[in-house]
Simulated assay, not measured.
Amino acid sequence: MKQLENYGVQALNTEELKSTEGGFWQYVVAGALYVMSEWDDISAGFNDGINGNDYDYNPCP
């Protein structure tokens, strides 16, 4: 513990350890699922942008 104090930090307690063990993988999975669910619009918009076409972003007629 003395070595940590030399660097100006302290050890984590058990609650802090539990909350930091998860990392950010949940956000990566959520982002991947969102991209998968919107892939048709993403690819259509990308292709229209590359080809110089206008893309109708309003799905309602």
Results as ranks from 00 to 15, higher is better:
Met1Ser: 12
Met1Thr: 10
Lys2Gln: 12
Gln3His: 09
Gln3Asn: 08
Gln3Met: 05
Gln3Tyr: 09
Leu4Phe: 14
Leu4Tyr: 15
Glu5Thr: 11
Glu5Leu: 10
Asn6Asp: 14
Tyr7Asn: 09
Tyr7Ala: 09
Tyr7Leu: 14
Gly8Trp: 01
Val9Phe: 13
Val9Arg: 07
Val9Thr: 07
Gln10Met: 09
Gln10Thr: 14
Ala11Trp: 06
Leu12Gly: 03
Asn13Gln: 02
Asn13Ile: 00
Thr14Ala: 10
Glu15His: 03
Glu15Val: 04
Glu15Thr: 08
Glu16His: 01
Glu16Met: 01
Leu17Glu: 06
Leu17Thr: 01
Lys18Phe: 01
Thr20Val: 11
Thr20Glu: 09
Thr20Trp: 04
Glu21Thr: 04
Gly23Phe: 01
Gly23Tyr: 04
Gly23Pro: 01
Phe24Glu: 08
Phe24Trp: 08
Trp25Ser: 14
Trp25Val: 12
Trp25Gly: 08
Gln26Ala: 15
Gln26Phe: 06
Tyr27Val: 11
Tyr27Ile: 07
Val28Ile: 14
Val28Tyr: 14
Val29Tyr: 12
Val29Met: 07
Val29Pro: 00
Ala30Met: 09
Ala30Cys: 02
Ala30Lys: 05
Ala30Asn: 09
Ala30Gly: 00
Ala30Gln: 15
Gly31Cys: 06
Gly31Ser: 11
Gly31Ile: 01
Gly31Leu: 07
Leu33Gly: 04
Leu33Pro: 00
Tyr34Phe: 09
Tyr34Arg: 11
Tyr34Asn: 06
Val35Leu: 15
Val35Lys: 15
Met36Phe: 10
Met36Leu: 12
Met36Asn: 11
Ser37Trp: 11
Ser37Gln: 14
Glu38Trp: 05
Glu38Asp: 08
Glu38Ala: 12
Trp39Arg: 12
Trp39Ile: 13
Trp39His: 05
Trp39Tyr: 13
Asp40Leu: 03
Asp40Ser: 13
Asp41His: 08
Ile42Glu: 02
Ile42Trp: 05
Ile42Met: 08
Ile42Leu: 15
Ser43Ala: 14
Ser43Leu: 15
Ser43Gly: 00
Phe46Arg: 08
Phe46Gly: 05
Asn47Ala: 14
Asp48Glu: 10
Gly49Asn: 06
Gly49Trp: 01
Ile50Asp: 11
Ile50Lys: 11
Ile50Gln: 07
Asn51Ile: 02
Asn51Met: 13
Asn51Ala: 15
Asn51Asp: 15
Gly52Trp: 01
Gly52Val: 01
Gly52Phe: 02
Asn53Tyr: 09
Asp54Met: 04
Tyr55Lys: 06
Tyr55Val: 12
Tyr55Cys: 07
Asp56His: 03
Asp56Val: 10
Tyr57Thr: 07
Tyr57Phe: 14
Asn58Pro: 02
Pro59Ala: 03
Pro59Met: 02
Cys60His: 13
Cys60Asp: 12
Cys60Trp: 15
Pro61Met: 02
Pro61Leu: 03
Pro61Ala: 08
Pro61Tyr: 02
